[in-house]
Amino acid sequence: MNHVFAVRIGPVGFRVGSDWRAPIDTLADLYRDYPAPEDGIPDFSVRLFARRPWRRVLRPQVMIGGDYTIPDAAPLPLSLGLLAAEMGMNLQMALAQRRYLLLHASCIERDGRAILMTGESGAGKSTLAALMMARGWRLMGDEFALVEPETGLIYSFPRLVSLKNQSVGVVGEALRGARFGPWQRDTPKGDIRHLVPDGASIAAMAEPARAAAILFPAYGHAPDRREVAPGECFVRLTQASTNYVALGERGFDTLTRLVRDVPATAIDYPDAATACAMVEEFAA
């Protein structure tokens, strides 16, 4: 690979190699306050490579590769190189992470209490996490929460926050002066912009926290909250985990402990301000 970038996000080290310089420069800029992989050794490698050699120049198309790949993945135009790199990093985590139980959830923390927010795409978990960061919470991650099987502690994975469409403006209003990556237009999920987590969230990314609440937010409804029983929570979280099956009994023990120890609530919300106020109620 001609161009290389290495970074540590929470406890995970990545090496991203690319046929092109532009995505690497963007990554290096956005992740400039993050440390390098521990001992210089990455856990996962991602490769962004040209589909055919001549496409590197003529009509750049980015293929995503790495330790693990999805066959027949469609290439992305070079203008979406940052998105390709982020997708590649997520893919390695989703397919290959074995040290932690991975939950597809955003996570925020204050006073040692972590709140996990999970739900379908569009539930608002990334937006909510970013808005709570604007209210002084630590952002532990917008995509994956890492549960350590031995302790049940939640580890941070504060990669760039992937915001879509209108949420970019909403979060930009709440976080004046925050750093964003370039617009990634016309992706399968609409227009995307990546937000750099604040300095406090990056500085504290090695510190785990104890889960205090599990929330299932749903956007577009009148405000409502409903307790989610451990059995239902267990089912929903097995579906929200990318590596539950791969972890075998460790995954089972980790997840049953989490749902028994941590109360879960479904919250419906009509707008971001209401949602933030509802999430704050779980701070105490």
């Binding site: 029983a229 451990p230 059995g231 267990f234 097995t238 539950y244 099956v245 075998g248 009994e249 089972f252 023990d253 049953t256 749902v259 028994r260």
Partner: peptide, 19 residues
């Protein structure tokens, strides 16, 4: 491995690796 979750039980079957 059987864990009680409110009215449900989660059963992990070691032989098949299924929950």
């Amino acid at each position: 491995s059987i864990v009680s979750l409110d009215l449900m039980r989660a059963v992990y079957h070691r032989a098949s690796g299924r929950t």
